[in-house]
Design a protein around this nucleic acid. Structure first.
Length: 161
DNA sequence: GCCAACGTTGGC
DNA sequence: GCCAACGTTGGC
Protein backbone atom coordinates (compact mmCIF):
# COMPACT_ATOMS: atom_id res chain seq x y z
CA UNK A 1 0.00 0.00 0.00
CA UNK A 2 1.31 3.39 -0.97
CA UNK A 3 0.66 6.79 0.53
CA UNK A 4 -0.17 10.01 -1.29
CA UNK A 5 -1.02 13.64 -0.92
CA UNK A 6 -3.65 15.04 -3.25
CA UNK A 7 -4.36 18.73 -3.59
CA UNK A 8 -7.71 20.32 -4.15
CA UNK A 9 -8.86 23.88 -3.98
CA UNK A 10 -11.64 23.72 -1.40
CA UNK A 11 -13.67 26.28 -3.34
CA UNK A 12 -13.69 23.81 -6.21
CA UNK A 13 -13.89 20.53 -4.29
CA UNK A 14 -13.42 20.22 -0.54
CA UNK A 15 -13.00 17.27 1.78
CA UNK A 16 -16.44 18.15 3.15
CA UNK A 17 -17.84 17.67 -0.33
CA UNK A 18 -16.13 14.29 -0.55
CA UNK A 19 -17.72 13.38 2.77
CA UNK A 20 -21.12 14.21 1.29
CA UNK A 21 -20.40 12.40 -1.98
CA UNK A 22 -18.73 9.35 -0.44
CA UNK A 23 -16.56 8.82 -3.50
CA UNK A 24 -15.50 10.97 -6.41
CA UNK A 25 -13.57 10.63 -9.66
CA UNK A 26 -10.43 12.75 -9.52
CA UNK A 27 -11.20 14.66 -12.70
CA UNK A 28 -9.29 17.48 -14.26
CA UNK A 29 -5.67 16.53 -13.69
CA UNK A 30 -3.81 17.71 -16.80
CA UNK A 31 -0.25 17.14 -15.81
CA UNK A 32 1.57 14.11 -17.15
CA UNK A 33 3.55 13.39 -14.01
CA UNK A 34 0.41 13.41 -11.90
CA UNK A 35 -1.42 11.31 -14.47
CA UNK A 36 1.37 8.77 -14.57
CA UNK A 37 1.34 8.45 -10.80
CA UNK A 38 -2.40 7.84 -10.82
CA UNK A 39 -2.22 5.46 -13.77
CA UNK A 40 0.90 3.50 -12.90
CA UNK A 41 1.48 3.74 -9.17
CA UNK A 42 -1.86 3.96 -7.42
CA UNK A 43 -3.69 0.89 -6.18
CA UNK A 44 -7.06 0.37 -4.56
CA UNK A 45 -6.62 0.83 -0.83
CA UNK A 46 -3.81 3.36 -1.05
CA UNK A 47 -4.18 6.10 1.54
CA UNK A 48 -4.47 9.77 0.65
CA UNK A 49 -3.83 12.96 2.58
CA UNK A 50 -6.48 15.38 1.35
CA UNK A 51 -4.79 18.77 1.05
CA UNK A 52 -6.56 22.10 0.61
CA UNK A 53 -4.61 24.47 -1.62
CA UNK A 54 -5.07 28.05 -2.86
CA UNK A 55 -7.05 29.02 0.18
CA UNK A 56 -6.53 31.34 3.13
CA UNK A 57 -4.99 28.60 5.29
CA UNK A 58 -3.69 25.78 3.12
CA UNK A 59 -3.11 22.42 4.77
CA UNK A 60 -4.18 18.82 5.26
CA UNK A 61 -7.87 18.48 6.03
CA UNK A 62 -8.17 14.72 6.41
CA UNK A 63 -7.92 11.34 4.77
CA UNK A 64 -9.22 9.57 1.72
CA UNK A 65 -8.43 6.27 0.06
CA UNK A 66 -8.18 5.02 -3.47
CA UNK A 67 -11.34 3.11 -4.34
CA UNK A 68 -10.96 2.55 -8.12
CA UNK A 69 -8.13 2.90 -10.61
CA UNK A 70 -7.62 3.06 -14.35
CA UNK A 71 -10.66 5.17 -15.18
CA UNK A 72 -10.80 7.45 -18.21
CA UNK A 73 -11.39 11.01 -17.01
CA UNK A 74 -14.78 11.78 -18.60
CA UNK A 75 -14.13 15.52 -18.79
CA UNK A 76 -11.58 15.00 -21.57
CA UNK A 77 -14.45 14.04 -23.92
CA UNK A 78 -16.76 16.92 -22.99
CA UNK A 79 -16.34 19.84 -25.42
CA UNK A 80 -17.78 22.31 -22.95
CA UNK A 81 -15.50 21.25 -20.12
CA UNK A 82 -12.41 23.33 -19.37
CA UNK A 83 -10.63 19.96 -19.30
CA UNK A 84 -11.73 18.98 -22.81
CA UNK A 85 -8.93 17.41 -24.83
CA UNK A 86 -9.68 17.25 -28.57
CA UNK A 87 -6.97 14.65 -29.07
CA UNK A 88 -8.52 12.19 -26.64
CA UNK A 89 -11.05 9.58 -27.74
CA UNK A 90 -12.92 6.97 -25.72
CA UNK A 91 -10.93 4.29 -27.54
CA UNK A 92 -7.69 6.08 -26.78
CA UNK A 93 -8.11 8.22 -23.68
CA UNK A 94 -5.20 10.40 -22.72
CA UNK A 95 -6.19 11.23 -19.14
CA UNK A 96 -6.55 8.39 -16.70
CA UNK A 97 -7.87 9.05 -13.22
CA UNK A 98 -8.63 7.26 -9.99
CA UNK A 99 -11.67 7.36 -7.79
CA UNK A 100 -11.17 8.21 -4.14
CA UNK A 101 -13.43 7.69 -1.13
CA UNK A 102 -13.88 9.65 2.06
CA UNK A 103 -12.15 8.28 5.14
CA UNK A 104 -12.24 11.04 7.73
CA UNK A 105 -11.91 14.72 8.43
CA UNK A 106 -9.06 15.29 10.84
CA UNK A 107 -10.03 16.36 14.33
CA UNK A 108 -7.39 19.06 13.84
CA UNK A 109 -6.81 20.68 10.45
CA UNK A 110 -3.05 20.68 9.94
CA UNK A 111 -1.90 23.92 8.30
CA UNK A 112 0.99 24.04 5.89
CA UNK A 113 2.67 26.50 8.25
CA UNK A 114 2.69 23.80 10.92
CA UNK A 115 3.98 21.13 8.54
CA UNK A 116 6.92 23.42 7.86
CA UNK A 117 7.90 23.46 11.54
CA UNK A 118 8.03 19.66 11.86
CA UNK A 119 11.54 18.28 11.61
CA UNK A 120 10.05 14.80 11.17
CA UNK A 121 8.56 15.90 7.85
CA UNK A 122 11.81 16.86 6.22
CA UNK A 123 11.69 15.77 2.59
CA UNK A 124 7.91 15.82 2.26
CA UNK A 125 7.29 16.95 -1.28
CA UNK A 126 4.66 19.57 -0.53
CA UNK A 127 7.24 21.41 1.59
CA UNK A 128 9.69 21.75 -1.27
CA UNK A 129 9.89 25.01 -3.14
CA UNK A 130 7.71 25.06 -6.20
CA UNK A 131 6.18 21.64 -5.49
CA UNK A 132 3.14 22.21 -7.65
CA UNK A 133 2.37 18.60 -8.46
CA UNK A 134 -1.26 17.98 -7.53
CA UNK A 135 -0.71 14.28 -6.84
CA UNK A 136 2.36 13.58 -4.75
CA UNK A 137 3.81 10.49 -3.13
CA UNK A 138 4.28 10.62 0.64
CA UNK A 139 6.56 8.47 2.74
CA UNK A 140 4.66 6.19 5.15
CA UNK A 141 6.34 7.76 8.17
CA UNK A 142 5.46 11.25 6.94
CA UNK A 143 1.91 10.13 6.38
CA UNK A 144 1.67 8.68 9.88
CA UNK A 145 3.20 11.78 11.41
CA UNK A 146 0.66 14.04 9.73
CA UNK A 147 -2.11 11.72 10.93
CA UNK A 148 -0.85 12.21 14.48
CA UNK A 149 -0.79 15.99 14.06
CA UNK A 150 -4.37 15.83 12.83
CA UNK A 151 -5.43 13.56 15.69
CA UNK A 152 -6.58 11.03 13.15
CA UNK A 153 -8.92 8.32 14.29
CA UNK A 154 -7.01 6.03 11.98
CA UNK A 155 -3.85 6.66 13.88
CA UNK A 156 -3.20 3.11 15.02
CA UNK A 157 -4.09 1.81 11.60
CA UNK A 158 -1.47 4.09 10.09
CA UNK A 159 1.17 3.02 12.57
CA UNK A 160 0.45 -0.60 11.80
CA UNK A 161 1.43 -0.15 8.17
C1' DG B 1 16.43 19.00 -29.98
C1' DC B 2 17.04 23.63 -28.13
C1' DC B 3 15.22 27.30 -25.80
C1' DA B 4 12.52 31.58 -25.26
C1' DA B 5 7.92 32.84 -24.44
C1' DC B 6 3.98 32.03 -22.26
C1' DG B 7 0.52 30.11 -18.99
C1' DT B 8 -0.46 28.06 -14.56
C1' DT B 9 0.13 27.00 -9.77
C1' DG B 10 -0.08 28.34 -5.31
C1' DG B 11 2.04 30.46 -1.15
C1' DC B 12 2.34 34.76 0.76
C1' DG C 1 -1.85 41.27 -6.40
C1' DC C 2 2.91 39.68 -6.55
C1' DC C 3 6.10 36.60 -8.00
C1' DA C 4 8.93 32.30 -8.07
C1' DA C 5 8.81 27.87 -9.92
C1' DC C 6 7.57 24.87 -13.17
C1' DG C 7 5.33 22.76 -17.40
C1' DT C 8 4.06 23.34 -22.12
C1' DT C 9 4.25 25.28 -26.65
C1' DG C 10 6.15 26.34 -30.86
C1' DG C 11 9.64 28.55 -33.88
C1' DC C 12 13.87 27.46 -35.66
Amino acid sequence: MRHWLMKSEPDAYSLEQLRLDGVTGWEGVRNYTARNLMRDQMSVGDRVLFYHSSTAIPGVAGLARVTRTGLADPSQFQPKSPYFDPKATPDNPRWIMVEIGFVEAFKRFVPLSELRTEAALEGLMVLQRGARLSVQPAAPEHFAHICRLGQSQHHTLQEAT
